[in-house]
Design a protein around this nucleic acid. Structure first.
Lengths: 109, 109
DNA sequence: TGTTTATATAAATATATAATTATATATTAT
DNA sequence: ATAATATATAATTATATATTTATATAAACA
């Protein structure tokens, strides 16, 4: 990523946003901000395959957006910080105001 | 994207976050939230190639995160909404805190 | 009008990532 | 110890996307 004045940590920040930038992960995050949830419940609620959910959860954990704890054979996941919820809410507000423009967005380069 | 209870608009929201989810775009956004900037200035400040910047600007515009206006042969871009800045700030805070948490961690349990 | 400057687009390539299928690990119960 | 349940990992495939190089458009100016 060639960049002259690239602020240090910019890659880290963009990685953080990747947690939110996929439909499956965002659905999962929206469940996690409501509270502790097992992988199985997430699988049920999203309709995604179990390995797929597991893979996304790993990504979210590594990015610092989710935390987990084991209880018996279940593993409970939750959002790591209330700001995860705030970020989603801000985006939803922003989107509500400019939804029309984004409808036509099909490219991401 | 197989999803049972996928909230309507979830794909749209995740698309919005894609604007932030790439290092080059995030660098550009951080410039845009400071105010009107020409493409040339962005190219200079980021060190990215002109076509690359142009391409990212198009994405940001289509996603509703940036607006533009032409003035002579220059085109000025800016963030579309103050919430763009807020979202970035929240993410930075979140990262700073989780980094701090790791830094301050002296116990290994 | 022709040239220079500023920005956008197109084509090609390389890389990243999401989802699937199959399998492994960890915990509890029998 | 074995089976059942819950979750994670690996390998594969398919698709998305970032970047480069080359070219096109649009405005200002000589």
């Amino acid at each position: 990523m060639p960049s002259i004045t690239a602020e240090p940590g910019i890659e880290l920040k963009s990685k953080l946003f990747r947690g939110f930038s996929d439909g499956s992960r965002l659905s999962i995050l929206k469940i996690l901000v409501e509270g502790d949830t097992t992988v199985g419940e997430i699988v049920e609620q999203t309709g995604l395959s179990q390995p797929n959910v597991s893979s996304h959860l790993r990504c979210l954990s590594e990015c610092g957006l989710a935390l987990s704890r084991r209880d018996g054979r279940h593993i409970y996941y939750r959002a790591s910080d209330p700001r995860v919820h705030k970020i989603i809410q801000l985006a939803e507000e922003l989107l509500a105001d400019s939804a029309k423009g984004i409808y036509e967005c099909t490219r991401y380069e």
